[in-house]
Amino acid sequence: MTIYNLYIFDRNGVCLFYQEWTREKHPGMSQEEEFKLMYGMIFSIKSFVSRMAPVDFKDGFSSFCTSSYKLHFHETASGLKFVMNTSLNVGSIHDELQHIYSAIFVEHVVRNPLSKLGQAIDSQLFKTKLDSYVRGLPFFTKVN
């Protein structure tokens, strides 16, 4: 079990924050392009799912699995998007992503008067808090 990386996007598609822990493979493109591609994929999946759905739904898209990783998605009502990639054997981490939003993002970014909306987060406190929370999660075990 491992956590690969985390992306936080705002409602306009700006990547507010990115961190990787045990990422094995990097796509052959610049990080900016990667953020755009990731946001575009999430955006398209959301529209795909809402049109494809045979029944009415509440939250919509929550995760997808490939043969080697699982992407978890959580969106707040204000449009903030949390995307976390983990290994396949991790169950639903909706509560953990909600915790990252309510107890770390709101506390250390929204309540920080120096952090501007719609810009990449450069608060060191947020980064340390997030890092220690993610490293403390039961499914975070570094595989070498």
Binding site: V49, D56, F57, F61, S62, F64, C65, T66, S67
Partner: peptide
């Protein structure tokens, strides 16, 4: 690529 895509209704 995507093998399983999960939502709350399907």
């Amino acid at each position: 690529g995507i093998q399983v895509l999960e939502t709350d209704s399907f």
